[in-house]
């Protein structure tokens, strides 16, 4: 039982990382209709920029901020120079974002080399607590993983408040349904496209920065791995749904943690299988199913 609780805890903490990637990916897909295969590259850049600034300054906080700024700037450039030219053309979007992903991943190799680099955890988050639960056993709580969960929850709350309580959020939610109509109401939707894409880059950069001390080793390929899982989360949570991404991230991360422990051979296959089933039977995502269940319970 203690083992399961530890696995759950680990799953939730990794769910926070998936959430940072998937929520922005989902909003970009929902609002702009862009399938962004370059998101993983922003994640990698976040990880490497974080490591560089963390080593140079010794400040974990500065490292995180630098990673987010890098993600924002690269995201801004991606949208302005490339993605904005292919709105409405999914084929061209896939080709162009895949191309950007390859180029920016190669640039990582050019600047930092192809071999994995070691990343240390900040001292104040390096510890581990052993919590005795009567009759259950000892649950191992990594302080860094706890920190990831807190960051994930804070981002989820801030994102939710931004989307539901502000005019910016209102515009994004409306734009997910019809950017054209938002524009016809007098709102410059293209400006929102650029900012959302750049903000998505910042979140991916943050994800990469937070991932680096967790794995304690980074390489140019880490983005691809997280990107695939993030796309699975987007499908499961529902495209364009912020809270769907939160639920989907937890679902996938916990599932990977549990299956990875008990049936390691299936840990890669299971998420893809679930994605395929969702696409076949519930293409609008499982989060909308939760909404329907909630309405049914209310009735």
């Amino acid at each position: 039982m203690a083992n399961i609780l530890t696995l759950l805890f680990n799953g939730i903490s990794e769910g926070a990382l998936y959430f940072l990637m998937a929520s922005s990916l989902s909003i970009i897909l929902g609002l702009m209709g862009v399938v962004n295969f370059a998101h993983g590259a922003l994640f990698v850049w976040g990880a490497y920029v974080f490591r560089m600034v963390f080593i140079q300054t010794g400040s974990f906080f500065f490292g995180i901020m630098a990673a987010m700024v890098a993600g924002f700037v690269i995201g801004f450039i991606f949208e302005k120079l490339f993605v904005s030219r292919v709105y409405g053309n999914v084929g061209a979007q896939i080709m162009i974002t895949l191309g950007l992903s390859i180029v920016f991943t190669e640039l990582i190799r050019v600047f930092w080399g192809p071999t994995p680099l070691i990343v240390t955890r900040p001292e104040f988050l390096a510890g581990v607590s052993h919590i005795q639960l009567g009759g259950v056993g000892t649950v191992i709580i990594s302080h860094y993983r706890l920190f990831l969960i807190i960051v994930g929850v804070v981002i989820a709350i801030l994102g939710h408040l931004l989307l539901t309580k502000t005019r910016i959020g209102m515009t994004i939610r409306a734009g997910v349904q019809s950017g054209e109509m938002v524009s016809a109401l007098g709102i410059n939707i293209n400006l929102y496209f650029t900012l959302v894409f750049a903000a998505g880059g910042a979140l991916a950069g943050l994800g990469g920065a937070l991932f680096a001390p967790l794995s304690q080793s980074i390489n140019p390929e880490i983005g691809n791995m997280f990107q695939l899982d993030a796309f699975i989360v987007v499908v499961i949570g529902g495209m364009g749904s912020f809270m769907g991404s939160a639920v989907g991230s937890l679902f996938i991360a916990i599932m990977i943690a549990l299956i990875g422990w008990y049936v390691p051979a299936l840990s890669s296959v299971a998420p893809v299988t679930i994605m395929a089933l969702v696409l076949i039977f519930r293409p609008q995502g499982l989060f909308s199913l939760l909404g329907l269940l909630r309405q049914a319970v209310k009735k």
Partner: peptide
């Protein structure tokens, strides 16, 4: 001119499919 500028110039628009935002 892009639609948002046309709107700001003082033209209101009700599209055929209502164009209301369901989640708002």
């Amino acid at each position: 001119k892009p639609p948002h500028k046309v709107s700001k110039m003082g033209i209101g628009y009700c599209p055929e499919d209502y164009g209301v935002f369901n989640e708002l």
